[in-house]
Write a protein that binds this DNA or RNA. Structure first.
Ligand code: FES
Ligand code: FES
Lengths: 157, 157
DNA sequence: GTAAACCCGACTAGTTTAGTCAAGTAAATA
DNA sequence: TATTTACTTGACTAAACTAGTCGGGTTTAC
């Protein structure tokens, strides 16, 4: 298993999309400013999210990305999976063939842990994150930072 | 978070120690053969396990390593921690300061996941692993492979 | 005193991360 | 139609880390 900023950025960006859904398509430039993620890196991540049809894009001025499904129907596990970070902690990728085609001593333990991690992150949808108080607070802070003139707000629509 | 063969090897090796505890000190060469882990690599891992006093060593011929505590008192989480693999999946190492000293949108989610992973692996001791049927089966298989003459058995002990 | 074992530090090939950079294409609007 | 905004694609890279190897020790049982 490997859970790094790649997966965390993807989830954060998707949550940003869910929080700002009512504003229409959101440009990567906006997400980049709000979440402090490199624009070029976001492009890489959204290429993968689009391939897995978690988001759809609108090109041209005023364009951007939007969720291609209801936030209730998108789980954190799906997002992490889309950017190629595996939640599997086994060495054998669940094949049970670590040791000359047979199970190693700890295979069962890692299967068990993988299942729990997957169950947890599958049970959490973008919609349920949006409803959390902590998330709302951070979101409000991020939007007020924009209004304080730290960032270009005027022309944005 | 990063859970790779390093942590898996460490747990496997410690479990091997627990399973063979009654034979007296177990040499790394034995573990290396049974678990198919490079001897030099095991030396690196056991240096760290010893620093954390999870194992103690006996030098000289007939020597090896043994658990320095009851298997009931050693959890999988402790072992993984000892070889410097973190079970923490936050970016901020629990500080909540990802974004200019403040919490990022997903901080709470990662804290939550980290706590669950840690709780799970802390709840599993070497003793409880030894009692599992799957583990016993694999252990029997590994010992019979030795007796089939695939490996040097005669002079050991 | 010799061999079995632990101990220790330096080294390394390969992979992955977290990006950057450049050159496009598509679409809205003036 | 020209311009601009924004998505799209691919190549490239420094730094870190993994999963080891290698060579030399030191300790102790026999
Ligand atoms: S982790 Fe599945 S066989 Fe070893
Ligand atoms: S992960 Fe803790 S603040 Fe971002």
């Amino acid at each position: 298993m490997r859970l790094t900023t790649k997966g965390r950025y993807a989830v954060t960006a998707m949550l940003d999309l869910a929080l700002n859904a009512e504003k229409g398509p959101i440009s990567l430039a906006d997400i980049s400013k709000r979440q402090e993620i490199s624009l070029s890196y976001l492009e890489q991540l959204f290429a993968k999210l689009r391939q897995q049809s978690l988001v759809s894009s609108v090109r041209g001025p005023g364009g951007g990305y939007k969720l291609s499904r209801e936030p209730e129907a998108i789980s954190v596990a799906q997002i992490i999976d889309a950017v190629n970070e595996s939640l599997d902690v086994t060495n054998c990728e669940r094949q049970g063939n670590c040791q000359q085609g047979q199970q190693c001593l700890t295979h069962h333990l890692w299967i068990d842990l993988s299942d729990r991690i997957h169950a947890f992150l599958s049970s959490i949808s973008l919609a349920s994150l949006v409803q959390q108080d902590e998330v709302q607070e951070v979101s409000v802070r991020q939007n007020s930072a924009r209004e304080l003139g730290l960032l270009d707000v005027s022309g944005v629509q």
